[in-house]
Design a protein around this nucleic acid. Sequence first.
DNA 1: CTAATAATTGTCCCATGGGTCAACATTTGA
DNA 2: TCAAATGTTGACCCATGGGACAATTATTAG
Lengths: 193, 193
Amino acid sequence: MRLTRISEIRRRELRRAAFEVLQKEGMAGATLEKVATHAGASKGIVLHYFANKQELFEHAMREANAALKEAVVVRLNRARTPRERLEAIIEANFEERFFQPSVCHAWLSLCAEVPREPQLARIQKVIHARMRSNLLSALVDLLPAEDCETVALGITSLIDGLWLRLGLQSEGLTRDTALSQMRDYLAHRIPAT
Amino acid sequence: MRLTRISEIRRRELRRAAFEVLQKEGMAGATLEKVATHAGASKGIVLHYFANKQELFEHAMREANAALKEAVVVRLNRARTPRERLEAIIEANFEERFFQPSVCHAWLSLCAEVPREPQLARIQKVIHARMRSNLLSALVDLLPAEDCETVALGITSLIDGLWLRLGLQSEGLTRDTALSQMRDYLAHRIPAT
DNA sequence: CTAATAATTGTCCCATGGGTCAACATTTGA
DNA sequence: TCAAATGTTGACCCATGGGACAATTATTAG
């Protein structure tokens, strides 16, 4: 089954190319031709491997999400205490490779499509559910039960807000600022030790 | 100068129509024809009053922003104490007419264009600057000086994150949830009294 | 070696939508 | 009342981009 292999390689290349073009061009500007060129192929090949534009970007979103998920997993595995698990989740979301204006902009472009693209909405839903569940599993040991949901929402909203802001390329927002913002929240919202 | 008046009326109608179409269709789907139809006019008239699509949506963003600003001003005028001023700013951002999935979705669509639309970027910058300045003027009386910037960023990020989430139409996020999330933040981050 | 299968390309088609324009309608001011 | 200015329309143009497809070139398995 070499065939499967080559098609999988091609599909991955195209997914990545799609996400990279998205970073610079936004959804409207990310044409099939640009994606193809960026992947070093022809437009035809894109539609050979993906039924249509939506499907391509759906897979691009899946892949980007998978990378983030993986980063969280790696850090979670290293974490020993609930507190460390919490920090692992947060720090993964602010790794340099993710927390970049262009990357956040790509995410923004995808998010803007969510209301009209059921497939993207599904992915979004999964992302949120995983985030929530990860956070709750750490928070449950750190907070009274009735506070967990609130703080989980607080953390995700803060992360989203900081990502959004970076996506807008408002200068002056650095990774460090963002991370210390998160730490500030934790410091004040979660009882010491 | 009646003439100015009628053109102003038409321009306002078109700005509003543009924003409303944006709510349902997103940026790509918001064609000049749909905007015109929604305003009960022909496509030609849109380009008679606005040089091009970008300019139309730039003005739509300006108007939506002006409405939000106005809501903040009204509430700020009623506020007596710094704490009330802080709450005024926050509550204005969660008024029913603004904090709606469709409205947040329209904002999201505009934000996604910011990196490639310098005019939108400028507006965005103004919005952030005003928000920051409003918040700081209230926070300065409530917090040690070195904490003000941090908390101002925390509040705006939280607001943005909640708006984003509503824009994604993730069910289960209500105005009440959002507001109590904000209150929870204030309660823990700003010393009582 | 060869037939079948998959990969890849370039061309073509067509709907869409932004933008132009000339013509027509209405308002306004003198 | 009537011309000048403004409002308004619909028809037209054209670039763009998504998608279909037939033709061509590897690959692979028997």
